[in-house]
Structure formats: structure tokens, C-alpha cells
Design a protein around this nucleic acid. Sequence first.
DNA 1: CTGAAAGCGCTTACAG
DNA 2: CTGAAAGCGCTTACAG
Lengths: 360, 360
Amino acid sequence: MQKPEVKTKRVTIEDVARVAGISKSTASRALNSKGSMTPQTRATVRRVARRLGFEANAHAQCLANGRSNNTIGFFSPDLDLSVGTRKMQDIQHLLGERGYVVPIHAFGYRQPYALINQAQLLADLRRQRPRALVCNNSNLREAAARAELLRYCDDGGLAVCYDWPLEVPCDMVVFDREDATYCATRHLLELGHRRLGFFINATYGAEGPDGTEPHRAGFLRALREWNIEPREEWMFPTTTFMQVEKGGVGLASLFLALRERPTGMCIVNDAAALTFMGEVGRAGLHVPHDVSVIGHDNTMMARHGPRQLSSVTHPVLPIACSVVEMLDSRLNGRYDGEPRKEVLRCELVVRDSTAPPREA
Amino acid sequence: MQKPEVKTKRVTIEDVARVAGISKSTASRALNSKGSMTPQTRATVRRVARRLGFEANAHAQCLANGRSNNTIGFFSPDLDLSVGTRKMQDIQHLLGERGYVVPIHAFGYRQPYALINQAQLLADLRRQRPRALVCNNSNLREAAARAELLRYCDDGGLAVCYDWPLEVPCDMVVFDREDATYCATRHLLELGHRRLGFFINATYGAEGPDGTEPHRAGFLRALREWNIEPREEWMFPTTTFMQVEKGGVGLASLFLALRERPTGMCIVNDAAALTFMGEVGRAGLHVPHDVSVIGHDNTMMARHGPRQLSSVTHPVLPIACSVVEMLDSRLNGRYDGEPRKEVLRCELVVRDSTAPPREA
DNA sequence: CTGAAAGCGCTTACAG
DNA sequence: CTGAAAGCGCTTACAG
């Protein structure tokens, strides 16, 4: 009683060996370019393998080898539509060039982070026994998830983390977010703004190791340097929209409802900044005359979109290169020392969404 | 001579069994909730496993089971910053809710597709023996890659493809792109435009099964219905920028250099449409008075950005739901018949980037 | 250069 | 309810 799809038996290395008239051992060596043997034999085995359509079972190989040799797990709680994904693209690509397969274990914004069991997912990934791990830990919220990562490292697993400082004994590339928002805010202050608002979307709102959200910290530091007291009602509430653009829409309505408004807005994320500009513009306000806006990340849309947006850069490619270089040096044994940490910073890009305030 | 990191031997199910004082077989059953046994025993085994930090080796399980039970491979030649990724988010999420782990094998835009060996990557994925495969085949260009997919299906592998019609015997959800661009173009025609331009970025330019690119085909069909001859110089050359926004910038400079310009532009991709609007706006043209613009996908930025953009929707969630439903019904044996095919369509969303042409 | 054998870590009939 | 044994498909010392 066969099922409609006759699941033909998979061809194994044993089949290849039999047809080629040699042993499994030799077949394996021929296929993996190991040991020495007659070029003759090697060629025959390969030909037979091709003809039979042999494909080594990756699981059996991993089991025999102890560790999968060329797959690197990529873990990221984020799969955004912006710089986060761009970094993943770059890292995956650079690693791909070096011969690695890098499946991405990421999670989009369909639901609040709280509902995703990050620890479980990391554990699942670890059970795959990848050769190494690349981990974007910027939204690795649960302590349990961090514990999983720590455990992976303690077990001798090779990992490189990026984007966020974390107390894990592995190489790390961090982007100085505090500094980024500080730079953005300072730009507004230097233009003469004294009434400043701040907004961040929840998807960017992970907390730093010291318990404070770094973007907010950078904003407050700049204000402190200028001896300005932050105004409660201008520290706009973090929204939990999974689509950051919606955050900008909500922000605009709060802003417009205000009796007394800031003259400058520091918004952590270009997309949110652009939708904010769109909404207040349609409400009759003029940017930058009525309100200056500075975003974060310096995306393509900030540069070339319908309205240009001042922003601070997010060093996507440098971060990716550093991650890959660190990983590669470990994989090749070029480096075998203490965990390294590299910090990368933003640059300010001024465009016409920021100008001195009207009253100045 | 031990290496600095003493790679402690991994704890196996054998260790668990030994400590718990029972056999491997029983330990396995206890951990996997199979067979029947004293609640006592089961509890003991689980406790021991937890205490020892046992984690089943996924490869060994797959090998023993014949097929990995809960990982579904997700293959996509794209990892964009728009609807493509949004669909992946949704599919991954919906599948995750059903208990599956869905690592994404995708490839970003760092380089032209030509340089990526899709066939090799698909073969690698297949060697992982996933429970099933979800495949976004919209940029599955190489015949070799298609052959790999076909082979996977022929070998009895379970797959669901989406986004693009392909001659593969598996369930399929396709978005009618020809129709989408037809609708967008018709909107311009109905407004009275007769001089129409068309632009598509290479990343969207895969060809349909009949050898024509469907968006272009939809554009031409609309023109034909209105008895309008397409003008060579207004069929703007497809650019190969990996970042679609740049496509809009290049398009703008070509457009501005034209002696005689179209009054309406049909642009396949909102991001490109928005950067186009930005660039021509800064060159002194007014949208929609000097030129009407309609995009594709109806993204958040089209709705809430600095300039609102008419667009046609891309049914992200419906596509994702259909894909998951089809897959789920097969996995659960609720359906076991012939390959199914579902076609989804766009809706037109009119905003203020389109208006009747000046001369009308 | 090549082959027989052991082993990777699990699961699952098959006996008891 | 539980255990001994076979087997999943490969690789790699170890002999020859």
C-alpha cells in the first residue's frame, strides 16, 4: 500500500561506494578531498556521486564530525526593515564569501517582544551545534536569554556579539548609541534650540547594562551640558508599535495636541522622524521653521526622500566588517586571546530639516 | 597539554540515563513524552536532565528520525527592507506559533544576483533535510536553482512556494504582479494622462514563466487598452542598484534630462517612487501638477511620510496566511491532493501624488 | 592507496 | 513499564 508519492530511498554514500566498486571510507575521502589516492579513483567516485545525485546528509556529517563545519548560526531578535536587516545582509554576505552558510534565526515585529521566548529559541539554535554564533543582542531582553548566550560561551562555543554591550565573555562590536543621540541633540542645541523633545520607539528601547536606555541617556547628557532641565511632557512616551513608522504618526498627534511645543525634536529612527514630519506638515506646521527634526541612522530615505532629514549615521558596514573579521580571526586561529571589544561611533549629517529656531 | 578553554565533554542522553539509573531508551521516551511509563520515572529523568543541563543533539535526532521534525527551511533570494521581509516576518511568525523553528536562508542586496550561486545554496539547505520548505521564488533566476527546487519536490519533499508562478509541482501562492501594475497604470490613464513613463528596479525584475517581466507587461497592457503606443525613451532602463531607493534617484536625473517628459510615472516600488519625488521636487518640479507619481506596495512611508503617495497594495498578510495554511494542512495530513495554486491581487489606494495632467 | 571497524548521539521496533 | 540491540549516514583513526 504505497502512498501516492513513492518516497524513493535516498542515495547514501554506501550506494556511491557500491556502484563505484570501492569502500565507504574511500568514497568519503574522495568526496571530501582528504587523504591521498589515485586521481583515477577520486574522479570515478565523483562521477558516480554526481550521476546518482548523491547529497551527503548534513546531520550525519555533523554527528560524525562533532561539529558542523561550515554553518554559522545567526541569532537576532530583530528583523526590521532598516539598518538592522542591512547589517544582517552584510554580515551574511561577508561570511558567505568565506564559505560559510549562515541561516538567520531572527524574529520580526509581528508581536511585542514579551511574547517571544528568546531563551527557547537560542537553546534550539544551540542544539544545532553550529560552528559559531553571530548574535545581535540589541533586543535580547530576557535575563534567561542572556543566560543561554552566556552558557553557550562557557561551554566553549565561539560567538561574536554586536550592537550592544553585554556581560558575556566573547568578542563584541558595539555601536555607541548614547553618543549618537548625544551628537544629534548637541546639533539642535548648537543651532540655538532650548526646547527639545525626545522620542524613541519601543523596538529600539532595550536597556543598556546599567539599566538605562542609552539613547535617552545621550539626550539627557546633552541637555545637562547646556544646563537645561528636561521637560517631562516633551519626553514623549515610548510606543510599542511594531512598525516604527507608526510611532512617528502617534508622536505627531501628541505633539500637535501640546499647548506649548518643543522647537526641536530628536527622534531615534529616520522612518519615525519622516512620518512625524509628514503628519505635522499636513497639520500646517513647517519644518524646520516651526520645528526642527533630527533622525537617526541616515537612511536612504533621509537623504533622497521627499523631505531631506538631518540625521546621525549608523555605521552599518564597519560594524559588519568588524564582526566578520573578529569571527574569522578566531575561526582561523589567527587570534586566540581574551575577548575583544570594539566601539564604533556615528557621524552627524546636517540637512534642511534642522535650522535655528524662529525666536533666535 | 590542554587548550585554555577546557572543552568539557557534552552531556548526552547516556549521561542522563546513567545518573537517573535507567536505560537510554527509557530516558529518550521520558524526554519526548512517548510510550507509557511511571510518572515517577518520567519526572526523575526530566529532573536529572535539567540538572545536568542536557540538550539533545539535533543532528543525532534527525539522523535517527529520518527527518528533522520541527524545522522548516525558509529559502528566499531576497532580504529586502520592505514587503519582502515583511512577508518573511509574518510567515516565520505564524509558523513559529505552530511550533516550528524556521531559520531563514536569505540573501541581501550586497551584490548582483548573478554572483550568488542560488542552486548551491538551495542544495545546502536541502542537505539539512528540513521537515518542509517555504520558498520565495520571486528572484529565483538561475535555471539551475529552479531545477534544485524541482528535484526537492520530486524526491518527495514538502514545499510551498510563493510570490511567483513557477513550474514546480507544489502548492503555490502567487501575487498577481501584472495586475498590480495594470491597476496602477489604469489609474493614471483614467485621470487623463496619456504620456506615461515606467520604471522598475532590477531587484524586482525577475521574469515570469512566459519570459516577460510581469510589471512591464501590466503597464503595456493598460496602454494597449487605451490605444497608446509606448514610447521607448519613457520605458526607463532598469537599474541594478541593490538599494531600490537609489533607483529612484537615478531615474529622476534621467527624467529631468528629458526634452519631452511624461506627465505620469508608474514606478514599481514605493521607496523608489518617494526618492524620485524628492529629487524632482528639489529640481523645482511639482508633484502632481508637473508629474503624477504612483508607486507599488502601499508602504507605511507612502501613507504617512512627508509626501503621500498613491500606490497599489501588496497583500502581505494574506499571502503569509495562505502560505502557512497550505503548509499546515499538508503537515497535518488535512490535505494530500494535487498541488494548489492561489492568486492574490492588489487594491488601488489613491493619494495626492496623482491628479489629472495640467493640460487636461 | 584502500578497507574493516568503531563511533558520533539519538530513536524505535522488539522482547521481556 | 523497561531494556538490549539495531540502525540512521557519515568520518576517521587504524591496519594492511
